[in-house]
Design a binder for these strands. Structure first.
Length: 454
DNA sequence: TCTGGGGTCCTAGGACCC
DNA sequence: TCTGGGGTCCTAGGACCC
């Protein structure tokens, strides 16, 4: 089993595409007042910035000149796709765990020499190919006899690591580690284990199955009991089906007004419905998530008699659930989700229906019971400077491609450079400059500036 | 300037059915 | 006339992962 974990992935893609940020601290995540860090580059980690930390805290810790960027998920996706394709050349059994992580079953097709020397060479070549194909993004590789050991291995020598755990060495590697290194042991479980005197995997392995089930529940307890003994027969599953589709948003300020919140629901439902339709899914259960001013979080859901992918239906149900839940004290977050998914099935009996416009129209008996608005409201028109966000790809008709460094006071600051250029110059422009446009991510294999801005 | 956004899995109680 | 047992579905919440 091989596990790959790309190093500080989002930040690495930013440093690849933005030459002026190479070697400098970069933090990717929410850039608003309530944002949190998704990824900190190793330079930023040296100052104490960490994933899941509030961006405000990361700003306090990092020196001025640190780049705080919103995410460019299309760019991360494109690079991730390149890496996953390389993994699929190794084996048909590849399980992406996220954009930057995947498991590979090297034994799937008998094509590899699985000796320690053999898999070490596979890991070495893979890392080199990834760096070459991605324009320098590095990854850490772990290889072992199970998913557990492969994942543990990839974590042991970050960044740019390669660790092979030979068969038979599992417990020697595992038992000295803190229990928090096991997948599934988060803060709550770690605290409970600590209270019974368990901090290392070795100490966990000394506990009985009955003790662990009493502590963590049936499934989780049995899982801990097995993992502590390096007993792990989990298979690599190449295609885990999607179970739900959702969209949520934390507001810059708590919101109370039902009309305002209703429009937020409409736009979130529109996104969810669109994603369902493009993936040809529909779902029966609509869930509204809300987080109050005091961070208490709750969900309310309703299951329909038939599956829907219609934004107005989703919105109408979510709006009613919100009315029932109330907005007292203000809400900091709303989310809209659909689960209980099935492949859209209305056309099954008459397959040609799928080709007809309107085949995916909402089911009349569902729509009739709800107070559906005509159209989900489009996002409100933003003031000029709000169109820009730090890290965003842009193109200026005269100055060429670049990216947004900052914004404010009706102006936007852009650095004009691309993945293949030297660090480029900075210009401050009017936020409503008609020559400045949002752009697609640059291609790291081909993109420089087309017009010399100097 | 406390605490994102996308998910998965598990548990538990009540309704309901046979 | 002292009240089963198993199974499924729905709802809600919580832990966890990246």
């Amino acid at each position: 089993m091989l596990h790959l974990d790309l190093d500080a992935f989002f930040a690495a893609v930013e440093q690849r595409d933005k030459p002026s940020l190479r070697g400098r601290p970069v933090v990717v995540g929410g850039v608003g007042g309530r944002g949190v860090v998704a990824t900190a580059s190793y330079e930023a980690r040296a100052f104490g910035a960490r994933s899941a930390m509030s961006t405000a805290e990361a700003r306090r810790r990092c020196p001025s000149g640190t780049a705080f960027l919103g995410g460019r998920f299309a760019a991360y996706r494109a690079t991730s796709d390149v890496v996953m394709a390389l993994l699929r050349e190794l084996s048909p059994l590849v399980e992406p765990a996220s954009l930057d992580e995947a498991y590979v079953d090297l034994a799937a097709d008998g094509a590899h020499d699985l000796s320690v020397e053999g898999v070490t060479e596979i890991g070495r070549r893979l890392k080199a190919r990834i760096a070459e194909a991605t324009g320098g993004v590095t990854g850490s590789v772990g290889i072992g006899t199970s998913k557990l050991m492969a994942k543990i291995g990839s974590d042991l020598q970050k960044p740019d690591g390669l660790v092979v755990v030979p068969p038979g060495a599992e417990l020697d590697v595992l038992h000295p580690l803190p229990v928090t290194r096991l997948g599934g042991v988060g803060p709550a479980t770690a605290e409970r284990l600590h209270q019974i005197g368990v901090t290392t995997v070795g100490e966990l392995a000394a506990r009985s199955l009955a003790d662990l089930v009493a502590l963590a529940g049936k499934a989780h307890g049995a899982g801990l009991h097995a993992l502590a003994r390096a007993e792990d027969d989990r298979a690599v599953v190449a295609d885990r089906g999607v179970k739900s589709v959702s969209h949520e948003e934390t507001f810059e300020r708590d919101l109370t007004d039902l009309d305002v919140l209703g429009r937020e629901i409409d736009s979130m439902a529109a996104r969810v419905g669109e994603r369902l339709r493009t993936s040809a899914f529909s779902g029966r259960t609509v869930t509204l998530k809300l987080r109050r001013y005091d961070f208490t979080t709750l969900t309310r859901s309703q299951t329909l008699p038939q599956a829907t992918d219609d934004s107005r239906t989703i919105a109408a149900i979510a709006r009613r659930l919100l009315t029932e839940a109330g907005t007292q004290g203000g809400l900091r977050l709303l989310g809209v989700g659909v689960s209980g998914l099935s492949v859209y099935a209305q056309g099954d009996l008459f397959a040609e229906d799928l080709l007809l416009p309107g085949a995916a129209e909402p089911l009349p008996d569902v729509v009739s019971v709800v107070d559906a608005p005509e159209e989900p409201a489009p996002a409100a028109e933003l003031p000029a400077e709000r169109r820009w966000w730090p890290g965003q790809d842009v193109r200026h008709e005269e100055l060429g491609p670049g990216w947004v460094w900052g914004r404010g006071l009706g102006r936007v600051t852009v650095r004009f450079e691309g993945p293949l250029t030297p660090p480029g110059p900075v210009r401050t422009l009017a936020a409503d400059d008609p020559l400045l446009q949002a752009a697609d991510p640059p291609d790291w294999r081909t993109t420089g500036v087309l017009i010399d801005p100097v």
